[in-house]
């Protein structure tokens, strides 16, 4: 069939831009309505006040992958035609860790900050200024960064392409990782909130940080072993 519409030439570039504003509107609306236009609400997750950020993220990921499974199997969308960025292994790991530090500092990520700016959060406006400065630093430094920026390019890698399977396998893997992670965090949050002490909070933060690093190492090893020549 015809989807993805823009890539398959069903709609024009201008229409795609108009759609982007509309789609962004929905995204921004839902983010604000769920309470994530607030650095305080976002960072509640990091200090185990609640588990809302992870619930929201995992539900969104599972919903999207579920629609892919349904629409893909009905032949209503050509999954190989969608675009996701190439996987640049070491730049991703570097960028992800640095992003995490920045998020712990600021309490925002780029998408939530835009919704927060719109709702009048002055700290989000300062964050936005910082973003513009950070982007300028990257642009000015690009001649020196270029080599690392394009290094370890693995192409577009999906779970099903890595294992030579179909998208059902990808969905099951997504369900397993997402479901386990959300359940695990649910447990940690309730564990910390029973007789909360600072040392308990810190040790759980380190535990989650280390487990996340282990996940990263496992995926890196998987990619290195299963993908030919990187």
């Amino acid at each position: 069939m015809s989807a993805p519409l823009y890539i398959n030439g069903v709609i024009s570039g201008h229409t795609n831009m108009l759609f982007s504003i509309f789609g962004g509107f929905l995204f921004g609306f839902f983010l604000e309505a769920t309470g994530f236009a607030s650095g305080k609400n976002i960072t509640d997750e990091f200090y185990f006040r609640n588990n809302r950020v992870i619930q929201m993220m995992v539900t969104a990921i599972l919903t999207s992958t579920f629609w892919f499974l349904v629409f893909g199997s009905l032949g209503l969308i050509q999954i190989p035609n969608i675009w996701t960025p190439n996987l640049y292994l070491w730049p991703y790991i570097f960028g992800g860790l640095l992003f995490g530090v920045g998020m712990a500092m600021s309490g925002y990520c780029p998408g939530t900050s835009v919704a927060a700016i719109a709702s009048g959060k002055k700290d989000a406006m300062v964050f936005g200024l910082g973003m513009l400065v950070g982007m300028a630093i990257f642009i000015f430094g690009f001649p020196f960064e270029k080599d690392f920026y394009v290094s370890s390019d693995l192409g577009q890698v999906y779970w099903h392409t890595l294992f030579g399977a179909n998208t059902l396998v990808s969905f099951i893997i997504t369900l397993a990782i997402g479901g386990f992670f959300m359940g695990f965090m649910q447990y940690i949050v309730s564990y910390v909130n029973k007789n909360r002490t600072e040392s308990k909070e810190y040790s759980m933060q380190y535990l989650i940080g280390v487990l996340a690093l282990i996940f990263v190492i496992v995926v890196t090893v998987l990619l290195k072993t299963l993908l030919p020549a990187s």
Partner: peptide, 10 residues
């Protein structure tokens, strides 16, 4: 917020 923004953007 400002320095976090710089790190995140980069």
């Amino acid at each position: 917020a400002f320095f976090g923004g710089i790190l995140i953007a980069y």
